[in-house]
């Protein structure tokens, strides 16, 4: 004798077509799903357009620039996690030509934005004031320093760059997942 317990009787619960084939079709649900599908394809097309424009990073709208009397900073206002990018600091002619230039960067450039290397290598690095102060040897203009960035996690981060004696430049960077 079997030990299997049959406790629930079989019911003919699946809706039939023409009262002969049990299919379980739900055309009402399917019509709603087709509407949802159409909507989602428009949403997808919109996301792709945003991406081409650079609102999700690596496009024309993602490029940004800051400037003051000491430097021009070119950066990406929208970054992507794990994707390399360049933050470029172009020193104004007045900043160069003194033999040495100091550049203070906030710790977020290294920690959150993931600075991998600095081109060219600085002559000296000092730690303090919530960041790092790099010293570069300079000649006549033009001259620039590049930070190779590679953020390791998504989020919204702020950074500050400052040439001592000038106003600091700050910006916000959105790092996409």
């Amino acid at each position: 004798m079997s030990d299997v317990a049959f406790s629930k009787p079989v019911q003919d619960s699946v809706p039939k077509i023409n009262d002969e084939v049990a299919v379980g079709e739900d055309l009402g649900f399917q019509r709603k799903w087709w509407k949802f599908e159409t909507l989602m394809w428009w949403v997808i097309a919109f996301i792709l357009v945003l991406n081409f424009a650079g609102f999700l990073g690596r496009g024309p709208m993602a490029h940004a620039m800051l400037s003051n009397d000491a430097m021009i900073v070119k950066y990406e206002r929208v970054e992507r996690t794990g994707t390399p990018s360049i933050l470029e600091v172009q020193f104004q002619p007045a900043t160069l030509g003194k033999g040495l230039v100091k550049l203070h960067v906030s710790q977020s450039v290294v920690n959150e934005l993931g600075a991998q290397r600095i081109i060219p290598s600085p002559l000296d690095t000092a730690v303090g004031r919530g960041g790092l102060t790099y010293t570069f040897t300079t000649e006549e203009a033009p001259g620039s320093v590049q930070f190779a960035l590679q953020p390791s996690k998504p989020g919204i981060f702020h950074f500050t760059l400052e040439v001592p004696g000038s106003a600091p430049l700050s910006a916000r960077v959105v790092v996409m997942p």
Partner: peptide
């Protein structure tokens, strides 16, 4: 289950195409 897998759909019934479903 219907959201994840969909629902069975009749494509042809009694010698006639169910045009709405075929197109959809």
């Amino acid at each position: 289950g219907a959201i994840v897998d969909g629902t069975p759909l009749v494509l042809l019934k009694d010698g006639a195409w169910v045009d709405e479903v075929m197109r959809g």
